[in-house]
Amino acid sequence: MLTKRIIPCLDIRNRKVTKGVRFQNNVELGDPVEMAARYCAEGCDELVFYDITASAERRPIDLEMVREVARAIHIPFAVGGGIGSIEDMARVLLAGAEKISVNSLAVARPEIISEGARAFGAQCIVLGMDPVRVANTPRFSSGYEVTTRGFRERTGRDALAWAREAADRGVGEIVVNSVDADGTRAGYDVELTRMIAESVPVPVVASGGAGHPRHLVEVFVRGLADAAIVAGMIHTRAYDIPGIKEYLAAAGVPVRRKW
């Protein structure tokens, strides 16, 4: 049986893993390569790195860090932030990343999804999207609008329509990061995750709001997520990955137990 993936998210700022509600009150947590190796040893199924200062500072992604991570761990990892072109994608993949995550770039230039999928294979292209809850209107019939640039910009795009468009354009996976739930540790937005998961043929990764292992159970069972991103709840060591997996297994959720 295909297992549900648990994916720690490492926000990178100046070569350090940071925490905090994104872009604010950042606290340094440690070295990205060391933390990746530790989570890998603890049984995480995949990792995602967001170079959160790269695009703001208009500099390319830290390829040396990507290379070091690729030498240290032998499980898939995705890299996002600071990717502006097909050439940037190629450099990140050649440095050893399995996937590239695009968010603001895809909103600005949706054709980058199809170009990337054609050039490297759909499995390499992950769409990150940050939907915020809005009033149900004909324009936002799903009740969610896509935001970009760390939630600061509204795009005028309906979240569900955008997810479907990205799937039609050949994206390999969609990370649904709820703006409302992000940083709250009060649980994922289960309805949002389920709505997208039921509407696209590609895997959906839930993100934002994980604070307790039961939140993962909810988003896998009721939210139909294929994978879930965790950050604060493990970075603070409130929980660890083996403990989360044990909890999930006890709740009947298939997880990888041997590594």
Binding site: M1, L2, T3, K4, R5, D45, A122, Q123, G172, E173, A197, E198, P201, V202, P203, L224, D226, A227, R256
Partner: peptide
């Protein structure tokens, strides 16, 4: 050939 919407293609992830 997926039987319902929860069976995604491609299969992505860890399987036995």
């Amino acid at each position: 050939r997926p039987r319902d919407r929860t069976e995604k293609v491609p299969q992505i992830g860890w399987n036995q």
